[in-house]
Design a protein around this nucleic acid. Structure first.
Lengths: 341, 341
DNA sequence: ACTTAAATTGCAAGCGTTTTATAATCAAAT
DNA sequence: ATTTGATTATAAAACGCTTGCAATTTAAGT
């Protein structure tokens, strides 16, 4: 196996200096057409390609985009319970690849760890996906690379790039849908209104829909799951069943929770949508195939990933551009889990 | 923002040479306890941490594990239609992180691209997940790093490390289950018996179960989807409905296909398991929550990822160890989509 | 032909580590 | 005290690239 050629080999072959080769490689407009073609030929025949680690060291840029995901001691796996993170990552990876960037993913459990990771690897930019503690973002302001936050409404939002969806409108759509179907006693299920700004936005929209229609919101119809998982959904469903409040419609901030709840209902012989109309949020790829198929507020998570990567790459090219936030649309998808009453 | 300290800064502070610092960093047993603590102190107070790109360049190792996923022109997203790749990636990332490795993912569309990626980034090892053309593996034999293949039965298997599941036994379990429930007319749905060695193994097991019970296999009960997606499942389901063969049980090599098929049945007023008993394969996290909940052959994909990473890391430490293949167990999970007839 | 300015190219010093070969130090043994 | 042999420490050369600056070539203007 003959050694991988270096820039020097190319230089020698093309009878120029390594610097010149570097210039043509980087498109620095300083080299004559003549020698350029000569260098290109040398590169071709020697099968040369630059060593990224060397480039990284020299340029102090890695051509790597990092995706950070939160992990904790009791949940040390990055995609745990997050059925849809893969779509997001796909989006990032795709646009990154199209721009010659590589994608690195890692779970982080502390702000220091996160900062060190960026520094050690000379990451060009990083995307934060998921819920992180405030102080993580504080720590990140120490970094001088572009950072994009996903679905964040925190204090530090304005320091970074953002991509999110129109959560409030999503909540509004869900509420309005049930109201239009004649529901008056509508429950709202979030993870936590206080801890999750996203949920709180959706709740705001939801309230707006009720208000607009003159439907009263009952505080005892508000539930918090504190967590997203099928199991939590089941628990919540069971809780609602035992309480037997006069609820007819339920808006849930996550398809995963909604699916769990519906399962709980079905196991207890309460049918959806006959007994409860439920509308989820996200429109996971599976939601359409549930029985009943899930009425839900759709967001395009793949697009979210693409937008995040695009924002990042755009920041590389225009480092001094101001902070941007992209807001992706949401859309109500009416299917089988809701009905007119 | 004060500059990130280099090994030289540490050396100066501790009044030793950079080489010495490097030695204590790498645990090379050549430095006295005395100076070692002095260096460690310097590292501590200066908040030093090594720059991985520099280390990579010097050692010609990156401390990065690559995960390669196949992409094509009409499917340029790495996780497209692969609801469970995220679990796998989680497993890899977790053990990688525990061993101080980083994880990089990329979609590859050609063998050269794959080889270049490894070389350019000085990847320490790579994991291939998904279906790749033969010549990809041929190209990879040119590489001198550990490689692990997932679910591969190809010719090149013996050149690399492998992790797979006991596909044949899985197929056997599925077939046996339906037979024990009294089914005689059992269909088998694969992606492609010829193109997918995995499916073909499962089919072998399935046939064995039939044979063992003296049940005849009807060739017109064999279906090929050529692809894995909910939509394909629906198509197949509709096809089976229109054909109206006397099928009562169906073994499907993928939960995704099974879910699609069941949907098609339900939309056409054929109930599962009343009309058809169907058993899937994989046990996706969602399968339990379908209606009916899916009987399926469970495999632990998270564990698969962990095993792959462990195998890789083990190879780093014992580079001359011979080729290993880890075979993970499968397990029948009986739920609501099958019934006795 | 002779300057002068502009366009190309090359030199060499980084980038932050590791590692080989060499030198310095120290303890024990004459 | 000297020699010897370990034991520790250092200098300096990589690793493969980029880039500021200087040197060279080319072109343009008198």
């Amino acid at each position: 196996m003959n050694k991988k050629p270096t820039i020097r080999d190319v230089a020698k072959y093309a009878k120029v200096s390594p610097a010149t080769v570097s210039y043509v490689l980087n498109g620095v407009n300083k080299v004559s057409e003549d020698t350029k073609t000569r260098v290109l030929e040398a590169i071709e025949t020697l099968n040369y390609y630059p060593d990224f680690t060397a480039v990284s060291l020299s340029k102090k840029k890695s051509n790597i985009i990092g995706i950070m995901l939160p992990i904790t001691e009791d949940s040390p796996a990055v995609f745990k319970n997050n059925l849809y993170y893969n779509e997001f990552v796909s989006g990032v990876e795709m646009v990154a690849r199209n721009h010659k960037f590589d994608t690195m993913i890692t779970g982080v459990s502390s702000p220091e760890e996160a900062r060190l990771w960026v520094k050690k690897r000379n990451l060009d930019g990083v995307i934060f996906l998921g819920k992180f503690p405030q102080n993580l973002f504080a720590e990140m302001t120490k970094l001088d690379i572009p950072i994009v936050l996903i679905d964040t409404y925190e204090e530090y939002t304005s320091f970074f790039q953002n991509v999110k969806i129109d959560d409030e409108y999503g909540g509004y759509l869900a509420g309005k849908h049930l109201i239009e179907l004649g529901h008056k006693n509508i429950a709202f299920v979030s993870t936590s209104l206080e801890l999750s700004p996203v949920d709180s936005k959706r709740f705001t929209g939801f309230k707006k829909a009720l208000q607009q229609a003159g439907v009263k919101l009952k505080s005892e119809f508000i539930y918090e799951a504190l967590d997203i998982s099928f199991e939590k959904g089941i628990q919540l469903g069971e809780q609602i069943l035992t309480e037997s409040k006069p609820i007819t419609g339920i808006v849930v901030v996550s398809d995963i929770l909604a699916i769990g709840m519906i399962k709980a209902f079905q196991e207890n012989k309460k049918l959806v949508p006959e007994h409860y109309s439920v509308v989820g949020f996200d429109d996971l790829s599976i939601s359409k195939y549930m029985t009943p198929s899930l009425t839900t507020v759709r967001q395009d998570i793949f697009q979210k990933g693409k937008s995040a990567a695009e924002l990042l790459i755009h920041s590389f090219e225009a480092p001094d551009a101001e902070q941007h936030t992209i807001e992706l649309p949401v859309q109500l998808v009416v299917r089988g889990s809701t009905r007119r009453i």
